[in-house]
Each structure stands twice: as structure tokens, then as C-alpha cells.
């Protein structure tokens, strides 16, 4: 369970990214965060990852206040969240296989687990034949599928996808959204999808939280993209 409690992020009096945002995400939920650019979607996700601190309010991941984590605890919490970004953020000097394995290595997983799990997720995202390619040798859609594989390989409780289809064509967008739904169905993993793609939202028919100018303006089950 994830709980945003009156979260505000104020950079300066004229630049307010989030204002008094509160909502709860239940286990195994697939939730879309929508809104125009600058509505505060990415900022909200950064708060959950403890990449940035809220000016006021708290973000709970289960019973943990993520912004009160120590430097030792924070990596452990982050291993329970898989992240996917618009710009993929793969490690350029590691192959697809190594990028995925890195998430497990960081958690100190034994070699047997890595040798078993990495091929498995490569198969899920359909990149078994490109396992030993470097990111520079992959297309945008393939890179994003490697990023998703990396996000799910450690069997996280939540997958956070920040505009994952922002740089992709419609066909690849469809594949990526399908994958995210599959992840949500398979392991009851929470998926938080931030996007401003109308087509994507309307095809999903899942919960939609709409942000505008840093405030929650709508929160609907089986929502549509309305602004």
C-alpha cells in the first residue's frame, strides 16, 4: 500500500509543483497518473522514490516514511520498487543481460538466482535473442523493454513507469502497455503509470488520477482521459 498524505512541493512561491496531494494506492492496483506536462506527475513519483523530499506532507510505502530512510535503508526500499523512465536510463557500458542482472546484483542475489531469473524476464519482454547487445545497439522500443525487464526482475511490490511510451511509436507503445498490464496481472504488482497519452488511458479502463497545476482534480475508477 502506498499513501500520499498532504504532499506539497514548493520550489518558490511562483513555482509550486505539488499542492496538498493526498490519495492511496491499494495492493495490486494499476493506476494511471495523467495531466499535461508540468502538472506534477514526475515530481510525485520522485517523492515516492525519495529522489526529492516534499516541502510538507509524507509519503508512505507500507509503514515506511520514505523520506525518513537512512542511507542504508533507502537502497533496500528502492529494490522493492521497479522504475521505468521515458529516456530508458540503461547503463550504456553493460549489455541488456547485464543491465537486468545489475538490479539483482545490487541486492546481493546469489549467481544461481541471476542465471535463472534474467533469462526468464528476457523471455517475458521478448528479447532473448538480444541479451548480449549493448543499449547503443538496440532500438527505442527494445531499450524500453530491457528497462521493464530490469524493473521487474527483482519481483518488486510496485513498478513505477514515468512516461514510458513518451519516445515510442504507436506499435511499441501498445507492446509496452501490454507488458505493464501483464506484470500487474501476473504477480499482483502495483503499477503506477504516469502519462499524457490519451489513447493509452482510454484503452486501459483502469483507475485514473488526474493532476493539474499540482493538484488532484479527478480520481476515478475505470477512468478516461478528460481535461
Amino acid at each position: 500500500m502506498i499513501y500520499f498524505d498532504k504532499v506539497s512541493k514548493i520550489y518558490s512561491p511562483t513555482s509550486i509543483a505539488l499542492e496538498d496531494v493526498s490519495f492511496t494506492i491499494k495492493p495490486s492496483e494499476f493506476i494511471s497518473l495523467v495531466g499535461p506536462s508540468g502538472a506534477g506527475k514526475s515530481t510525485l513519483l520522485k517523492m515516492l522514490l525519495a529522489e526529492e523530499r516534499p516541502t510538507s506532507g509524507t509519503v508512505f510505502f507500507e509503514s515506511h516514511d520514505v523520506n525518513k530512510m537512512t542511507r542504508i535503508e533507502l537502497p533496500k526500499i528502492r529494490r522493492r520498487m521497479g522504475v521505468v523512465f521515458q529516456d530508458y536510463r540503461l547503463l550504456p557500458h553493460k549489455t541488456a543481460y547485464e543491465n537486468i542482472a545489475f538490479a539483482l546484483e545490487a541486492g546481493g542475489a546469489p549467481e544461481e538466482d541471476i542465471e535463472r531469473d534474467v533469462p526468464q524476464v528476457l523471455d517475458i519482454v521478448g528479447l532473448t535473442d538480444k541479451a548480449w547487445h549493448f543499449p547503443g545497439q538496440l532500438s527505442g522500443g527494445e531499450k524500453q523493454r530491457v528497462a521493464i525487464a530490469r524493473a521487474i526482475v527483482s519481483k518488486p511490490d510496485v513498478v513505477i513507469a514515468d512516461e514510458p511510451t513518451g519516445n515510442l511509436d504507436p506499435a511499441n507503445t501498445h507492446d509496452i502497455i501490454d507488458l505493464l498490464q501483464k506484470i500487474n496481472d501476473m504477480n499482483n504488482t502495483i503499477v503506477i503509470l504516469a502519462t499524457h497519452d490519451k489513447e493509452v488511458i482510454n484503452s486501459l479502463r483502469r483507475r485514473v488520477v488526474t493532476l493539474d497545476k499540482g493538484k488532484v482534480v479527478r480520481d476515478e475508477e475505470k477512468g478516461k482521459y478528460v481535461l
Binding site: 537502497p75 528502492r78 529494490r79 522493492r80
Partner: peptide, 9 residues
């Protein structure tokens, strides 16, 4: 990126 993926310092 490594930090976000959960690697310790």
C-alpha cells in the same frame, strides 16, 4: 541510475 535501481553507495 544505479542509485534508483537500489544499489547501495
Amino acid at each position: 541510475v544505479m542509485q534508483l535501481v537500489g544499489a547501495s553507495n
